[in-house]
Simulated scan of single mutants.
Amino acid sequence: MTPGAQHPDNPEPAQPRRSDAERNRERIIAAGRTVLGRDGLNASMASVAREAGVGIATILRHFPAKEDLVAAVFLDRMDAYADAVATALDDPDPWHGFVGYIEAACAMQAADYGFADVLTMSFPTAKALEKRRNEAYEAMVELIDRAKATGRLREDFDPSDLVLIHMANAGVVNATGDAAPDAWRRVVALMIQSLEAPARGPLPDSPEHDALYKAMLRASPTGSTAPAPGKRG
C-alpha cells in the first residue's frame, strides 16, 4: 500500500454537509411544505424557490427532480399515515379501526392539499416514501380481512377501493377548498355508510391492479411510466 494511503477497511469519513448548504436544504423543505401543502403538487419549483428565498439553481442542486422534493417534503406525512394504519390495526374492534383509519387518512388529505395528491399518486424513485406506503398497504390488507371477518365490512370491498376513496376525497378537497372546507366530511361519511354490510347491491368490478397503478403514475408530477410492482395481499 502506498505510504499515507487510506486503508480500504478504514475509509475516510464522509465530509459533513457545509452548514450553509444544510441551511438551504432545510429552508427549501420548509418552503416546500408551505407551498405544496397550500397549492398541491401542481405548484412550480419556482414558487418553492421564491418562498425559500433562494434561486432555482439552488433548489435543483439539492433536488434535481420535483419528485425528489416531494419525497423529502412528505416523508413525515407518509410516516403519520402509516402510523394511522398501525393504530387502526391495534383497535380491538376491526370495523371501528377501519372506519377510524379512513376518517384519519381523509382528514390528513383535507389538512394538506399536497398530501391529498400524494396519496393518489406513485413515485417510483422515492424509495423511502414508497416503502412506507407499501408497509401501510400491507397492514391495510390485514385490517380489511379482519373487518370482513366481523361481518361489518361488505365482502366485495377490495383493497384497491382505498385508492379510489383517496382519489375521490382528493377531488372534493381540491374542488371545495376554502369555500366549503368541511364538505369532505359528508362525502367520507356517505362512503363509509356504503361500505357497511349488508351490501345494498353488487358493485362493478374493481379496476385491474396495473390500470390503477398506471393512473397513479399518470397523476404524478413527472408522469412516470415505470412498470407496476407485483400485486400485494
Rank of each mutant, 00 (worst) to 15 (best):
A211S: 10
M191T: 13
H209R: 13
D205V: 01
L217Q: 07
D182C: 10
Q193N: 10
A170D: 00
R218H: 15
D158Q: 14
A199H: 05
A199Y: 03
A199S: 08
T176P: 14
Y213T: 07
K214N: 13
L195Q: 07
A189Q: 10
G177T: 08
H209F: 15
N174A: 09
G201D: 07
D210P: 04
A199Q: 03
F157T: 02
A215I: 10
S220P: 03
G171P: 06
D182R: 14
L217A: 08
A175F: 02
D158L: 08
S194K: 15
A183M: 03
L164K: 00
F157Y: 11
L164C: 09
A175I: 09
F157S: 00
D210V: 14
A168V: 14
V172G: 00
N169T: 15
A211Y: 13
A189G: 11
S160W: 04
A189E: 05
W184A: 13
D182T: 14
L190Y: 12
W184C: 07
W184V: 04
R200Y: 01
A170T: 00
R218G: 01
A189Y: 02
M216F: 12
D182S: 10
L212G: 11
A215M: 15
E208Q: 13
D178K: 12
L190V: 13
A219E: 15
P204N: 09
V187W: 09
V187Q: 06
F157N: 03
L203D: 06
M191S: 15
P204E: 02
L212R: 07
V188H: 11
P159K: 11
L203I: 01
H209G: 01
L164R: 01
D178L: 09
G171H: 03
H209K: 05
A175Q: 06
A168N: 02
E196Y: 13
A168D: 13
A179Y: 11
A189I: 15
D161Y: 12
P202K: 12
P207Y: 07
P202R: 00
D205P: 03
S220R: 05
